[in-house]
Design a protein around this nucleic acid. Structure first.
Length: 504
RNA sequence: GCGCCCGUAGCUCAGUGGACAGAGCGGCGGACUUCUAAUCCGCGGGUCGCAGGUUCGAAUCCUGCCGGGCGCACCA
C-alpha cells in the first residue's frame, strides 16, 4: 500500500476506474482539490472521446468515501473535491511519521558515493566550490532521506604541477622572495609561510574546517597517492595502444571525442587520467553508484569517465556526473571575478561572514544546477522580508512559539467541525512533500525543495493570519496541523543544510 | 569550427506535453487590543530569443538560426 495519502488516493481512483492515473494540484481552486488528465492521455489508445472517458472516471470516483464530488471538466480533465475525512487521514500519517514524513522513497536502496568539492588545496575555498558543496551535499541529503547509503568523498592531490607551484610560492615568501611566475599570492600564502612544514596538508585542514562551518562534512578523503598501487592494474584492464612515444586509452571507441594519453612521454610517469581510471575502478568496486559533482568548466570529463567505466567493464549507468553552472557575485550591480591566484577573490569564509551560513546555503541551493547563479551579496545579507530564507524560518519560529505556549496540550488529526479553506490548503501542501522530495532526488534537483518550502510558509502564514490555534474550538486539530507543518519545514530546510530556529 | 548549458514579467528565477504561463524582489494602496506585523490582503506588468516542424494540445519534443556563458592540454 502506498505510503502517503495522495498516492493512495490515486491508486484507489485508478482501481475503480480501471486505469492508472496521476493526480496533480490544479492552480485554479474551482478545479478541485486534485485533478487528473488521465482521460486525455487514454483517449487516443482507447479510441474514445476524452470527455466521455472523463465522465466515466468521475462517476466511478464518486463511489469512494474520500471523494465528495467529482466532475469532468474542460477538454477531458476530472476534478476531485475531497471530503474532510481524507484530510484527517493525511494529517494522521504526517503526525505518525514526524520529521521522517516523506522519507524512504528509494525503490531499491543503493550504496552511493557522492564525490564533491575535491578542490586542490592550493588556497581557501571560493564561492565556486561553495556551490559544489551546497549542491552535492543537498543531493547527498536527499539520497539519504530516500533510504540510500551515502558516502561523501573528497579527492585531493598532494603532488603535481599546481601543488609544486603552490609549495614554491610559500617557500618563496619564507625566503623573502617574490612568488614564481604564475605562482600563488595573497594573505593566506603569507600565513602559511609563517607556519613551519608542508603547506598542503595545512591548507586542506583549513578547507575541511570551512566546509564544516558550511555544514558539509566528509566521510572519506582520498589522495591521488592512495591510488598508486592500483593504477597499473587498472591500465591492464582497459583498451590501450602505443603511439607518439606514449600510451593511450582508446576512449573514442566509447564515445569520447578524443583518445586520452596515460603517460607523460618525457618521464613515463602516469598522467591524471590514469589515476582517474584507477579511482573510478575503486569507486565502482566499493559502491553501486558513483556520483561526481563537477562545475561546468569540467563538463568535458563526462564522456571520458563514461568511456572509462565502459572499458573497465562496468555499466556506465552506474557513473553519474552532475554538472552545475558557475556563480557570479554582484554587489550593487558590479561583478566580482573569482580567481585563486589573484588578490581580489571572494572566499567562502568571507562570503559566510557576510551573509551567514543559512543565507549562503539557501542562495546556492535554490536555483536549478544548470542555471548560472547570480547572487547580489548586499541583498542576500539583508535580514529582512526581502529574503526568502528568513520568511521560511520565521514560519518555523512562529510555530515553535505556539507549541511553547501550548505546553503539552493534546493534538489530533481529527477536526471537530468542518475544515476551513486555509486548513485544507495547508494539509494539501504538506501532502505534496513525499512526491516532491522523491522527484527532487530522482532528478538530482534539490532546488525544488527550498522553492516548495516557500509555498509551505505561504500557506502557513495565511492560515495563521486567519485562524487562532490556542483556545480555539479546533485547538487539538490545529496543534496537529501546525506541528506537521513545522516538521515539513524543518525537513525541507535540513535537506539544504539550513537551520530551523525556535525563535527569531 | 566542434561539444555542453542558458535565453520566460523591469530584475532574479520556477515550470522535462495538458485547463487563462507562475513566484520572489522592486512599484502603488490597505490590515496589529490577538499564539511573533521578519506577517497578511488588494492592484499592475508576457511576441515564453526568432523561424519552421511533430501533436487533438508545445514554454516543454525535433530541425535551423540569433544572442550569452563554459569547455575543446602529455594541467588538474
Amino acid at each position: 500500500m502506498p505510503a502517503n495519502a495522495v498516492d493512495r488516493l490515486a491508486e484507489e481512483l485508478g482501481a475503480v476506474a480501471g486505469m492508472k492515473l496521476e493526480l496533480e494540484r490544479p492552480s485554479d481552486p474551482a478545479h478541485g482539490d486534485f485533478a487528473t488528465n488521465a482521460a486525455l492521455r487514454a483517449a487516443a489508445s482507447q479510441r474514445r472521446p476524452p470527455r466521455e472517458l472523463a465522465e466515466e472516471l468521475a462517476a466511478h470516483a464518486r463511489s469512494l468515501g474520500a471523494v465528495e464530488r467529482a466532475e469532468a471538466a474542460g477538454p477531458g480533465f476530472v476534478n476531485f473535491f475531497l471530503a474532510d475525512a481524507w484530510f484527517a487521514d493525511a494529517l494522521a500519517e504526517m503526525l505518525a511519521a514526524g520529521r521522517d514524513y516523506g522519507a524512504g522513497f528509494a525503490v531499491r536502496p543503493e550504496k552511493v558515493q557522492v564525490e564533491m568539492v575535491s578542490a586542490n588545496p592550493t588556497g581557501p575555498l571560493t564561492v565556486a566550490s561553495a556551490r559544489n558543496a551546497a549542491y552535492g551535499d543537498a543531493v547527498a541529503r536527499l539520497l539519504e532521506f530516500g533510504g540510500h547509503d551515502v558516502e561523501r568523498e573528497y579527492y585531493w592531490n598532494d603532488a603535481g604541477r599546481q601543488m609544486d607551484l603552490f609549495r614554491a610560492s610559500v617557500d618563496a615568501v619564507r625566503r623573502g622572495e617574490p612568488p614564481p611566475a604564475d605562482g600563488y599570492q595573497g594573505d593566506y600564502v603569507a600565513l602559511l609561510a609563517a607556519q613551519a612544514g608542508d603547506p598542503v596538508p595545512a591548507m586542506l585542514e583549513q578547507i575541511r574546517k570551512t566546509l564544516h562551518r558550511f555544514r558539509v562534512d566528509f566521510d572519506s578523503y582520498t589522495r591521488e597517492a592512495d591510488l598508486a598501487d592500483e593504477v597499473a592494474p587498472a591500465m591492464a584492464r582497459i583498451d590501450t595502444y602505443e603511439s607518439e612515444g606514449t600510451l593511450w586509452a582508446r576512449t573514442t571507441a566509447q564515445g569520447d571525442d578524443k583518445d586520452r594519453p596515460l603517460l607523460r612521454s618525457s618521464d613515463g610517469s602516469f598522467l591524471y587520467f590514469a589515476s582517474d581510471v584507477a579511482y573510478l575502478a575503486r569507486k565502482l568496486e566499493r559502491h553501486d553508484r558513483a556520483i561526481y559533482v563537477l562545475g561546468a568548466d569540467h563538463h568535458g570529463y563526462v564522456a571520458r569517465l563514461k568511456a572509462a567505466a565502459q572499458m573497465l567493464g562496468y555499466d556506465p549507468q552506474r557513473v553519474e556526473v552532475l554538472i552545475y553552472q558557475l556563480v557570479h557575485l554582484t554587489r550593487g550591480g558590479a561583478q566580482t571575478k573569482m580567481s585563486k591566484r589573484r588578490g581580489d577573490v571572494v572566499f567562502l569564509d568571507e562570503f559566510i561572514d557576510e551573509i551567514g551560513v543559512d543565507a549562503a546555503r539557501w542562495f546556492l541551493s535554490d536555483r536549478s544546477p544548470e542555471q548560472t547563479i547570480e547572487i547580489d551579496v548586499d541583498l542576500a545579507a539583508e535580514k529582512s522580508q526581502k529574503n526568502p530564507v528568513y520568511y521560511v524560518q520565521y514560519a518555523h519560529a512562529r510555530i515553535a512559539g505556539i507549541l511553547r505556549n501550548a505546553r503539552d496540550a493534546e493534538m489530533s488529526a481529527e477536526p471537530r467541525g468542518s475544515l476551513a479553506p486555509e486548513e485544507r490548503e495547508l494539509v494539501k501542501r504538506l501532502a505534496e512533500f513525499p512526491a516532491l522530495v522523491a522527484e527532487a532526488a530522482d532528478r538530482r534537483g534539490p532546488h525544488a525543495v527550498p522553492l516548495y518550502a516557500i509555498r509551505v510558509a505561504d500557506d502557513f502564514h495565511r492560515f495563521y493570519h486567519d485562524h487562532r490555534v490556542l483556545e480555539s474550538d479546533e485547538q487539538a486539530f490545529r496543534l496537529g496541523l501546525v506541528k506537521a507543518t513545522q516538521n515539513v519545514i524543518w525537513r525541507a530546510l535540513d535537506l539544504i543544510g539550513v537551520e530551523a530556529p525556535e525563535s527569531m
